[in-house]
Deep mutational scan, measured.
Amino acid sequence: NNDALSPAIRRLLAEHNLDASAIKGTGVGGRLTREDVEKHLAKA
């Protein structure tokens, strides 16, 4: 659900052409954090 993404996370996802649903969020309520996105990028 993109409504739960902060603007910074949306921008980071867009810059790397990532789909938020492909990344498991570890923030409050399962929200994506910058660390989640960076860890996903490091794996790729």
Rank of each mutant, 00 (worst) to 15 (best):
N1K: 13
N1A: 11
N1T: 14
N2S: 13
N2D: 14
N2Q: 13
N2K: 13
D3Q: 11
D3S: 08
D3K: 10
D3T: 08
D3H: 09
A4D: 15
A4V: 13
A4R: 12
A4F: 15
L5M: 11
L5H: 07
S6I: 05
S6N: 09
S6G: 08
P7L: 05
P7Y: 01
P7E: 15
P7R: 11
A8R: 09
A8W: 03
A8I: 14
A8L: 06
A8P: 06
A8Q: 12
A8T: 12
I9N: 05
I9Y: 06
I9W: 06
R10W: 01
R10S: 12
R10E: 15
R11S: 14
R11A: 13
R11E: 15
L12G: 06
L12Q: 14
L12I: 15
L12N: 08
L12K: 11
L12F: 03
L13D: 02
L13R: 00
L13A: 02
L13V: 04
L13S: 00
L13W: 00
A14C: 07
A14T: 14
A14Y: 09
A14H: 09
A14Q: 15
A14S: 14
E15Q: 09
E15V: 06
E15H: 06
H16V: 03
H16L: 08
H16F: 05
N17D: 11
D19V: 11
D19R: 07
D19E: 12
A20D: 05
S21W: 04
S21Q: 08
S21G: 09
S21K: 11
S21V: 07
S21Y: 03
A22W: 08
A22K: 13
A22C: 05
I23S: 01
I23Q: 01
I23K: 00
K24M: 11
K24I: 14
G25I: 04
G25Y: 00
G25P: 09
T26W: 01
G27D: 05
G27E: 03
G27H: 02
G27S: 03
G27F: 01
V28I: 13
V28F: 06
V28A: 12
G29F: 03
G29I: 03
G29Y: 01
G29D: 14
G30R: 04
G30F: 00
G30T: 02
R31N: 10
R31E: 13
R31P: 03
R31Q: 14
R31H: 10
R31G: 09
L32N: 01
L32Q: 03
T33V: 06
T33E: 05
T33K: 05
T33H: 02
T33N: 04
R34F: 15
R34Y: 15
R34G: 07
R34S: 12
R34L: 15
E35R: 09
E35P: 06
E35H: 09
E35I: 09
E35D: 11
D36A: 02
D36Y: 01
D36F: 01
D36Q: 01
D36V: 02
D36H: 01
V37L: 09
V37M: 04
V37Q: 00
V37N: 00
V37F: 04
K39L: 12
K39G: 10
K39R: 14
K39H: 11
L41M: 08
L41W: 04
L41C: 04
L41D: 03
A42W: 03
A42R: 12
A42M: 09
A42V: 13
K43D: 12
K43W: 05
K43R: 11
K43A: 13
K43S: 12
A44I: 15
A44S: 13
A44Y: 11
A44V: 14
A44M: 15
A44Q: 14
